[in-house]
Design a binder for these strands. Structure first.
Lengths: 161, 161
DNA sequence: GCCAACCTACTCGGATAATTCTTGTCCGAGTGAAGGTGG
DNA sequence: CCACCTTCACTCGGACAAGAATTATCCGAGTAGGTTGGC
């Protein structure tokens, strides 16, 4: 059980679009070349971000993707949910109701949620909260704090002067 | 991305062993019948719990599995790690170093951890902490609070008097 | 010289395979208990 | 009647397939911009 690599691709791509700054759309090919990714597969992930409202797509020649929101308005949770979907990490199959044990329990015994499910859901809530508390602007600020000249490196790597 | 169902199976099985109480080993077939699970696949999960030190296995006739620790000493995190392995939810592929952008950044720019990885790791820490704070005895207490006669239901379902 | 229509090249978008991981199944090695036999 | 040996049935443990999800790839619809011909 691990998150797909699409999340990492999406976050880095969003940050790169922010560093470029100018509202010009950037093509999937350029974004993929920035980190040596599969252009077609990255395109699939970016489509998820478009459907989630985080990106805008511009069709036609000189088209591409551009940020739909400022980084301050996008949390890490938004990105994860856009890429992975908002299904819960732990899906309770309600096995407590099945088998020789489950048959012994009257229906009234299942009126309250499964204790195992509740415990797992509580942990998942903590995970989502921690993701929601971090916006992309925070991540960007951390990266720049680690490497002050990062903005110029990105612009140069993408051919923007 | 979601946790395997083995986690749910393992927790319910551990609770059932605790409810039976007597230190007698219980076979995989009986435990599986309790919730109508695949005996062979449940056996595979229980082997993980044995390797993690949460269960003891008794071979031979009248053999089976028995708890190795009291429920107070086992956290939900212990069970999840035993079943799913302790690999991180988010594995950073370090794509920041690759491609036309990564090549622009000098080696010193990567001395600190990736900001994206740090953000995801922080959320995972919150998740693990929430799991570690809940021991199986707490989950058991919640289940009994919801269904007071649950202990007798389990014993009857497993044929223990 | 200016305008309009055409044409080309480039982009997103979704439909289509390959791979990896999870899930499920099967059979063999080992062990403890039961039953029979000899003392 | 007791102890020992043989046999047997039952259990775990790991090796072996099937299915699902992820990862990766390819091709078509659509659009903007450049080009060419006409006025």
């Amino acid at each position: 059980m691990r998150t797909g690599k699409g999340v990492e691709w999406a976050v880095h791509t969003l940050l790169n679009l922010a560093w470029l700054g100018d509202g010009e759309p950037v093509s999937t090919a350029q974004l993929a070349a920035g980190h040596d990714l599969s252009a077609s597969y990255l395109n699939k992930q970016l489509q998820h971000l478009v459907k989630a409202g985080l990106l805008e797509s511009v069709p036609g020649a000189r088209g591409g993707f551009r940020l739909a929101l400022p980084l301050e308005a996008v949390s890490m949770l938004d990105v994860v949910l856009a890429i992975e979907g908002d299904e819960p990490l732990f899906h309770c199959a309600e096995i407590r109701r099945c088998g020789s044990i489950g048959e012994q329990v009257p229906e009234s015994g299942f009126s309250r949620p499964c204790a195992v499910n509740s415990a797992m859901a509580q942990a998942e809530t903590a995970w989502r909260r921690a993701l929601a508390e971090q916006c992309l602007a925070d991540v960007q600020a951390t990266a720049v704090a680690h490497t002050p000249a990062l903005t110029s490196y990105v612009k140069r790597g993408m051919g923007h002067d």
